[in-house]
Simulated scan of single mutants.
Amino acid sequence: MIILRLTCALAAAGALMTTSAAQAPRSPWPAGDEIGMANTLGPATWQRCATYLADPKAKSYELSHLRSNTMPQSPFGVPLRDRYRPTVGIAGTRHAFNGEETVSGEAGAQGTQMDAIGHFAVLPEAWDGKGEFPADKARYYGGYAQADVKPTAESPLQKLGIEKVPPIITTAVLLDAKSHLGRGSAMQPGQAVTAADIEAMLKAQALDKRGLMPGDVLYIYTGWGDNWKDPDTEKFYYTKGPGLAYDAARYIAEKQVVLLALDNPFTDPVAEGFLQGKAPPPAGAPEGLPFAIHHTNLAESGIYQIQNANLGAMAQDKVWLSCTIILPLRAQGNSGSPVRPVAVGVPAQ
C-alpha cells in the first residue's frame, strides 16, 4: 500500500511539481456504487470456479506470505509488531491458554495485503508540497468527494472502505512474466508489463482463445517476490521493483478484471532511485500521476489490488487457470486489509 506520506515525499523531491488536469474518476456501474469491478462477481464466476474445485488432480496454493515481526516491511507504513503473551490459566480450573497482541503497525499496509477502492483519490491539480495538503479537493472512484468518503482527518472511510468488498470467488489467470519477459530471471526494477506483454503471455501460455474474462482475477508473477526473505536482513525487497504499465491498466479495465495481484511491493513499477526522487516516473504515466496504476485501478476503474502476492509455487507448477478465493478482513472504514488469497488448480502434467 502506498500511503500519503510517500506522495508527500515525492512532492518534496519534485516528482509531483507539474500541474495536470485531473482525470475524473468514472464508473460504469449505477450511481452510488462502492464495489467497482466486484459487480462482475456472482453465480457466473462461481460456476467457472466449480470446474477447478471438482477436479481430482487439483491442488491448493497459498498465495500469501507468512506474517511475522521479521518479514520485509514497507517503509511507508508503521512497522507491524506483535507481542506474544506468556501461557496463563484460570484459578480453580485446569485450563491453560495462549495469546498475543499487536502493539504497533499498520496491518493493512504490511505483508500480503489488499487495497480498498477508497485507498486512493485524485486532486484537480498537482500539489506543490507547500502548506497544508488540500484533502478537501480529493475526488474518489465514482465521483465521491472527500466529504463523502473521509469527512474529518480522524474519521474512518464512510464510503469505499475494505468492508464493502464482497467475497471474491472467481477464476484466476496467472501470467508468468519471469519466464516471458525475464527469460527465467526476475524482472528488473522499473520494468513494466505492458498490454502487448499480457497478450503475448496469454498466447505463449495457450490462453489466447480464452483471454481475460469479466470477473477474472489476474495474477502476474514477475519473479520479484523471490526477493522476499524472512528474516529480512538485507532490507532490499521494498526499495524498488517491476510493475504494471499504464496501458496495461487500461487494458485490464476494458476486460473487467476484478483484482490485480503481483509478487511485488508497489503494483506500480518503481525504478532504482525513484522513491528518493532521483529517477523519473514510469514511462507513459500521465503528468502528475507517477503512481498511475494505483490511480487507474482504484480511483477510476474500481479494480482491487493485492501487493506482495506469493506466486512462485503456482508458477512453478504452471497453474495458469484456477479458482481463487480472496477474503479481506471486514474492518469498518479501513483503506486496506491483510489478506489470505488461495487458489485451487491443476498442476501441468
Rank of each mutant, 00 (worst) to 15 (best):
W320P: 07
I325A: 11
S185I: 10
M213W: 11
A248M: 02
F266M: 00
P231M: 07
A126P: 14
I162W: 02
K318D: 03
V346K: 05
H119F: 07
I117V: 13
L329H: 13
T324R: 06
M37K: 03
E287T: 14
T87M: 12
L175M: 02
G241W: 00
Q47I: 15
L202H: 08
A172N: 07
S68Q: 12
W228E: 02
I198Y: 02
A147E: 15
S185D: 07
L174T: 01
Q113C: 11
L275F: 01
L157N: 03
R330W: 12
A116N: 06
I293H: 03
V257A: 06
H295R: 07
P242R: 03
Y52A: 05
A54F: 10
H295S: 02
S155D: 02
C49T: 12
P347M: 08
G131C: 03
S27G: 11
D226K: 00
P338L: 11
D263E: 04
I3T: 13
G77E: 09
Q73N: 08
F97N: 11
P56G: 08
Q256E: 15
Q188H: 06
P75A: 04
D136R: 09
H294W: 06
I168R: 05
L66N: 13
Y140L: 04
A200I: 01
W29R: 13
R94W: 03
L207A: 07
S322Y: 04
Y141G: 13
S104V: 12
T18I: 06
K278N: 03
V339M: 00
A279F: 00
A13V: 09
V165S: 13
I162Q: 06
P86I: 08
A31P: 14
K229E: 07
D128H: 15
H65Q: 09
G345F: 08
I90A: 15
K209W: 11
M114P: 03
A22G: 14
A12T: 14
L157I: 11
L175R: 05
I220G: 03
Q316I: 12
D230T: 11
T70H: 12
L174K: 08
P280I: 01
I2T: 04
